[in-house]
Simulated assay, not measured.
Amino acid sequence: MKRDVSSRIALNITEPAELIFAITASGHYSPESESLAATVDGEPIQLEELLDAHQTRLHRVTAPVGEFVIGYSATLTEGDPARGDDVERLVYLRQSRYAESDAMAPTAEAEFRGIQGADELLAAVSSWVGTRLSYVPGSSLPTDGATRTLLARQGVCRDYAHLCIALLRGLGIPARMVAVYAPGLDPMDFHAVAEAWIDDAWRAVDATTLAPRSSLVRIATGRDAADTAFLTVVSGRADLVDLQVTATADVLPDDDVTQLVSIA
């Protein structure tokens, strides 16, 4: 499958700022073509690339006051599957900032007790979250975690993913968050899904069902949204002025939530 992805972020820097971006396809891919560039008031500025343990490509820059613009585009086909080890899976069994699996464990046990088979369990959790929540843009706060999302019964993609992650960890299944480009998503934006360790592989879980999982392009991987944000302002002051994201694929496959799907 061939996919074309791009993003453009414009910021108003009012105090010199150290910025970290996670907007490029992860190191699991070998793009057919790719470009990444940043400017301040139209003048090029250097980006430093950092690679984390999950092949997330982070780009760090110290930007002076002015209009900051960063743009990325790539054409990709298939990538190498994400792998996991025993230590990593232990990390993703623990509760985290936005996925309070200790608080969600009793709900997980009550709702999914007795379900046999990993694929059936994964489909059950995805469907349960998808039917309990309403997708409402702007309905959640950046500080909301899985517990608050379930109480509110609404949220956006990151909230759906956090709830799936918390329930899966509460059932003893390692789970984590992945930021992705998502061909077929409407309205187009950066997207977030969960991943669960099932049958010796990481399997994508998207309770929103807004884009086919097999078309997703991995950007960043981590415990929850704290590890996968497209922009982190480490210091200084930067206000978001504009965000544009595109993602297309030459084929948009059907997506059956009962099937196990892995993304690169």
Rank of each mutant, 00 (worst) to 15 (best):
M177D: 01
L90C: 10
V40A: 09
Q154F: 05
S26I: 14
M104H: 10
D86R: 13
D102N: 10
S262I: 00
Q244V: 12
D206H: 07
A110T: 15
S214Y: 00
G117M: 14
A17F: 06
I13C: 01
S35M: 08
S30A: 12
T246V: 04
P64D: 09
Y181E: 00
H54M: 07
S126H: 05
D85E: 08
W128C: 08
V136R: 11
I263F: 00
Q259A: 06
Q116V: 15
S6C: 12
E78K: 14
T228F: 03
Q55H: 09
S262N: 05
Y72A: 06
T248L: 07
E32H: 10
L163C: 03
A204W: 00
F230R: 05
L90N: 08
A53W: 08
D86H: 13
T258A: 13
A182Y: 01
S134E: 15
H162N: 15
R223D: 10
D80Q: 14
L243Y: 12
A226Q: 06
G71H: 09
E109H: 10
S235E: 15
L163Y: 06
Q154M: 11
G184R: 05
A264W: 01
T77E: 15
S140I: 02
V129D: 01
S126D: 09
V261W: 04
A38V: 12
T221W: 04
T258V: 11
L93S: 08
T77S: 13
G79K: 01
T232G: 04
D159Q: 07
R218F: 04
T232I: 10
G27Q: 12
G84S: 12
A38M: 11
E48G: 03
E32R: 10
L216D: 01
R237D: 11
I45V: 15
V193G: 00
A38I: 07
R176D: 00
G170Y: 03
I198Y: 00
G170V: 04
E111K: 15
G114W: 14
L36A: 08
G71V: 12
V180P: 00
I9L: 14
S33L: 13
A238L: 03
S235A: 11
T75S: 15
A226Y: 12
I115N: 07
E88D: 05
A124H: 11
T39V: 13
A196D: 01
R158A: 05
Y92L: 07
H54C: 05
H28D: 10
T107Q: 10
V180N: 04
T62E: 13
T131I: 04
F21G: 02
G71S: 11
V251M: 09
L47A: 08
V178L: 13
L150F: 12
F112N: 09
R57L: 13
L58N: 08
L240Y: 07
E15N: 06
F21Q: 02
P174H: 06
P187R: 05
G172I: 03
Y92A: 06
E100I: 06
